[in-house]
Simulated scan of single mutants.
Amino acid sequence: MSMIGEYLRVTAAELDRAIQDPDWALDLAETVQDAEEETEPAPAEARHFTTHKTWDLLRFLLARVEFPVDVIHGEEPFAEDEDWGYGPPKYLRPERVRQAAKALRAIGYTQLTGGVEPAELTHAEVYPLGWTDPGALEWGRPSYEGLTRFFEAAARADDAMLVWLD
């Protein structure tokens, strides 16, 4: 079983309802995931986004630059229920989504990976391991660039974000 980073854009009203009714939020997340699995919208048009297994690589890289928002795990838990996967789901309010979008846009992936050696990832036990392959850091580029576009679209719409590991 893999650990996968998951995101769902929600309106402010949907965030309020998710906080009050986490089961409703889980149903919403599953409905949106199922619908978008078939249509595969671009990150800027999607309500759901996944970083797949790159979530821990991105966490490691963003921590190195002291990223101001926890875009990998979210910041505020809204459910204790383990039905979401690995640990409780969390959320980012619209103002934190805007801050994250601005910061993601300001840091390109090449800048983010500058000076990082694969051995450093192996030593830090960054999931999913296997960092000895040449070009292993490039594996995270599409996820980072997609995440950036996803957050930018959410910020333009003044959306909040649900975040979880599944």
Rank of each mutant, 00 (worst) to 15 (best):
F78K: 00
A12F: 12
Y144A: 09
P89H: 00
F78E: 02
H52Y: 08
R141T: 05
E152T: 00
K90L: 07
Q20W: 10
P22A: 06
K90F: 05
G130M: 13
A63I: 12
V71D: 00
L165T: 08
A44T: 03
G130W: 12
Y7A: 04
A25R: 02
A12S: 15
L57Y: 00
A157E: 08
A160V: 00
I72C: 08
H52Q: 11
L137T: 01
A42H: 09
Q99W: 04
E145N: 08
I19G: 10
G87I: 03
D83C: 15
R141A: 07
E138V: 06
E120V: 07
Q33V: 10
D27M: 14
Y127R: 05
Q111Y: 04
G146K: 00
A136D: 08
A157V: 05
A18C: 02
T148K: 01
D56G: 05
G87D: 02
W131A: 14
I107D: 00
G130Y: 13
A153C: 00
M161K: 13
Q20H: 15
P88T: 03
G135S: 14
R59Y: 13
T50V: 13
W139N: 03
Q111D: 12
A79G: 04
W55K: 06
E36T: 14
A13E: 02
A119I: 14
G5D: 09
I72K: 05
A44V: 06
T110A: 10
A103L: 06
H48S: 12
T122I: 14
D159Q: 04
R9L: 12
S2P: 11
T148A: 01
G108R: 09
G146H: 01
V65P: 07
A29N: 05
A155W: 03
E14G: 08
A42Q: 11
G140P: 09
R93L: 14
Y127P: 04
V32S: 10
A35H: 07
R17F: 02
F78W: 03
D16M: 14
L28S: 06
E6Q: 09
A106F: 01
T31H: 13
T110H: 10
L57A: 12
V116D: 03
S2H: 07
E45A: 08
H52R: 09
L104E: 00
P89N: 00
L121D: 13
L58K: 11
Y144L: 09
E36F: 14
A101D: 00
F60N: 04
R64H: 07
Q99Y: 11
T39Q: 07
I19L: 14
A29Y: 01
L58C: 15
T113A: 13
A29F: 03
E125W: 10
E95A: 15
D166M: 08
D23W: 05
R149S: 05
M3P: 11
F60R: 07
R149C: 00
D133K: 15
M161C: 15
W131S: 13
R96M: 10
E66Q: 12
A124D: 07
A106N: 10
E45K: 05
E152N: 02
R141Q: 04
W24G: 15
D56I: 03
H48A: 13
E76I: 13
Y109E: 06
E80G: 15
V126E: 09
R47I: 06
P68T: 05
L57E: 03
K90R: 12
E37V: 06
T148F: 01
W164V: 03
